[in-house]
């Protein structure tokens, strides 16, 4: 990687919240452009170049055109980073993966449903191209983004925490959602956010995705106490895992 790498941002199907989090670095955005050269960032600039080393990709893959475009980006970039949960594992878009696709298009477009071109499933970018680093979250955490960028410049191998949100929740000394008679996805969700939503008074919705192997990595103490197991809450209470859940099941079966 060059000393001041050329970076580009691309958005696929998503809310563009992860790019907004980058803009929300406010003054620090101007510091960031000292250490990297932004050559494409459609949300904030008109310039565009296909000559870049790091590609940050936001959003899921939902059309054949998305697949082609993504493959092209992979060819141009040395490093591809999945930015946010939609790109990382399908995220909220994958809710519809559990629904019959014909019903889905009809509900939204009625008689004009056949004018809509889309794949029956919303998928993460790793279903199309190889991904070098992942920043999960819905939206991404600004600090985590800065850390990953700094790491990439220094050539540090990117890592993802694999402890459940519960671990951080205990450290924060929050009152456990289960004690308050709420269902929380913290026991099976990948940590790294400091159990943010619990701290804000609710529960974990699972936005950072599942831990690698829920049956092994889950924080079972909390679950057992309330007569639940990892399997059950993965199957019944998730919002974000419409792609990840069946995918994990296949993987675990193969092992």
């Amino acid at each position: 990687m060059t000393e001041r790498p050329r970076v580009a941002f691309f958005d696929f199907t998503g809310c563009e919240g992860d790019q907004l989090q980058v803009v929300n670095l406010e003054e620090r955005l101007f510091d960031l452009v000292e250490v990297v050269e932004v050559v494409s960032f459609r949300e904030a600039m008109s310039e565009h170049s296909d000559d870049y080393e790091i590609a940050f990709i936001e959003g899921s893959v939902v059309t054949a055109h998305d697949e082609e475009r993504l493959a092209g980006i992979r060819e141009n970039a040395d490093v591809v980073v999945a930015l946010g949960s939609c790109a990382a594992f399908g995220g909220i878009n994958a809710i519809r993966n559990d629904q019959d696709f014909e019903t889905v298009t009809e509900r939204v477009y009625g008689d004009d449903a056949d004018m809509i071109e889309a794949n029956p499933e919303a998928r993460p970018i790793e279903s199309v191209v190889e991904v070098d680093a992942t920043i999960p979250g819905c939206p991404i955490d600004r600090e985590e983004f800065v850390q990953v960028v700094t790491g990439l410049i220094r050539g540090v191998e990117p890592t993802l925490p694999n402890h459940p949100v519960c671990v951080e929740c205990k450290l924060e000394e929050n009152e456990c959602a289960f004690h308050r008679d709420e269902i929380c996805l913290g026991p099976v969700t990948r940590g790294g956010c400091g159990a943010d939503c619990v701290g804000e008074g609710t529960h974990c919705w699972g936005c950072r995705g599942m831990v690698d192997t829920p049956s092994e990595d889950a924080y079972t103490a909390v679950l057992e106490e309330h007569g639940l197991d990892a399997e059950e809450i993965v199957e019944q209470y998730q919002l974000y895992w419409g792609w990840q859940r069946p995918e994990r099941a296949t993987q675990e079966e193969a092992q």
Partner: peptide
């Protein structure tokens, strides 16, 4: 349009989740 199908995604969701989903 690169359709996102939110109106369909909402069908079957609980009243406690709708605002969380549609924020996105």
């Amino acid at each position: 349009e690169s359709p996102r199908f939110f109106e369909s995604m909402l069908v079957g969701r609980d009243w406690t989740e709708a605002h969380h989903v549609t924020a996105r």
